[in-house]
């Protein structure tokens, strides 16, 4: 029995490993093709600030970077390097890609996690309030706000926040992740958090509306179900029903949705980081794209793919562990009692 279970688990892990490998391969190919088709010449971008650079010198740079080789060969070179664990050196920052990612990921991770938790909590609470008050004015007001927020682009909201809170009110800094003119090692955690507030708020505003609307709908479905009707028939009040049946039945979809939203979060962080000049992966990837910095672009692409995959993977696992209906191999109910 136990051995069989172990085999099953390793089968599942093997399946997921295979999937993630093919996924990474596919995204890297697509990203590489796209960046190869891009009209931006990395050499031109590189020498732009350096004054007069002769054709011979450009040729040397090109040769040095290996740009003259056909695209397939370049891709295969990159692939064999990455299989050996070498992600290459960024053309733009002149640093190993792995180091850039690890440095910037901390910033992005802090930003994403803050807004992820914020949006999850705000969204869930608002969704519950709307679901319970369905049809009343509280519901219709919050619902309208959520619908508006759903259709607002991240960068625009970021600009509005900047305008209001940084320029007019002066409550928050205009940008970056730490104060200007202070050495990186001297920046305190509070200063970092202070710089994090506005971008995180922008990012969470984009996704909490989604979570709230989804939770609302799910809760309405639950409250209209037969088992809630029966709970009422047994004399339970609304709060008891929420505690016994409501949360139990909406928490799971909410958590799953929350983990599955990693992808949107990443997309949003690219925009939010650019608006707030926040030095994270999002601003790095757009810089890499604009400068045809292929190693950095591919590195970040792979990294974020992995991150999103992990989010979905966790969502799957949670569902299987928490929901008794999933992961059931055979209905052992039949054997009992009948």
């Amino acid at each position: 029995m136990k051995g069989k279970r172990l085999i099953n688990i390793s089968k599942v892990i093997g399946k997921y490993l295979f999937r993630v490998m093919t996924l990474l391969l596919a995204t890297s190919i697509v990203a590489f093709v796209l960046v190869s088709l891009s009209p931006i010449d990395p050499v031109q971008q590189y020498v732009m600030g350096a004054g007069a650079v002769s054709m011979e010198q450009r040729e040397t740079i090109s040769e040095y970077w290996g740009l003259n080789a056909p695209p397939t060969e370049r891709y295969l070179n990159w692939l064999s390097a990455i299989l050996r664990g070498d992600m290459g050196v960024s053309l733009l920052y002149r640093q190993p890609v792995a180091r850039i990612i690890s440095e910037r990921f901390i910033n992005t991770f802090a930003l994403m996690m803050t807004s992820w938790i914020l949006s999850g909590i705000i969204g869930f609470v608002l969704g519950c309030v709307m679901g319970i008050c369905q049809g009343k004015w509280v519901d219709s007001i919050i619902k309208r706000i959520c619908l508006v927020l759903c259709s607002v682009p991240t960068f625009w909201l970021g600009l509005v926040f900047l305008l209001i809170f940084s320029v007019w009110l002066g409550w928050f800094p205009i940008g970056f992740s730490s104060p200007i003119g202070i050495a990186d090692t001297d920046v305190s955690i509070w200063q970092r958090l202070y710089h994090l507030v506005l971008p995180a708020l922008t990012l969470s505003f984009i996704s909490f509306a989604n979570v709230a609307l989804h939770t609302r709908q799910k809760l309405i479905d639950v409250l209209e179900s037969d088992y809630v009707l029966f709970a009422r028939a047994r004399g339970n009040d609304t709060w008891t029903i929420m505690k016994r049946h409501g949360f139990r039945n909406i928490l799971l979809p909410a958590i799953t949705l929350q983990f599955a939203s990693f992808a949107e979060l990443f997309g949003g962080s690219v925009l939010a980081e650019n608006v707030f000049s926040y030095p994270g992966l999002g601003s790095a990837v757009s810089a890499a794209g604009l400068n045809s910095d292929v190693p950095l672009l591919l590195g970040i692409t792979l990294f974020s793919t992995l991150f999103v995959f992990l989010g979905n993977f966790i969502a799957n696992i949670i569902y299987g562990v928490v929901d008794p209906r999933i992961g059931e191999e055979r209905p052992h109910g039949q054997a009992i009692g009948d």
């Binding site: 179900s225 037969d226 088992y227 009707l229 029966f230 709970a231 009422r232 028939a233 047994r234 004399g235 339970n236 008891t240 016994r244 049946h245 139990r248 039945n249 799971l252 929901d323 008794p324 209906r325």
Partner: peptide, 28 residues
């Protein structure tokens, strides 16, 4: 409701799909 008048509903959909039935039978 529930204290003096009790209902025996007619289908399995009146049970919460995510709660063990013993607990549901006992109620609050």
């Amino acid at each position: 409701r529930g204290s003096e008048i009790a209902l025996i509903p007619q289908s399995v959909t009146y049970l919460d799909p995510l709660m063990q039935v013993g607990k549901q039978a006992r109620g609050t």
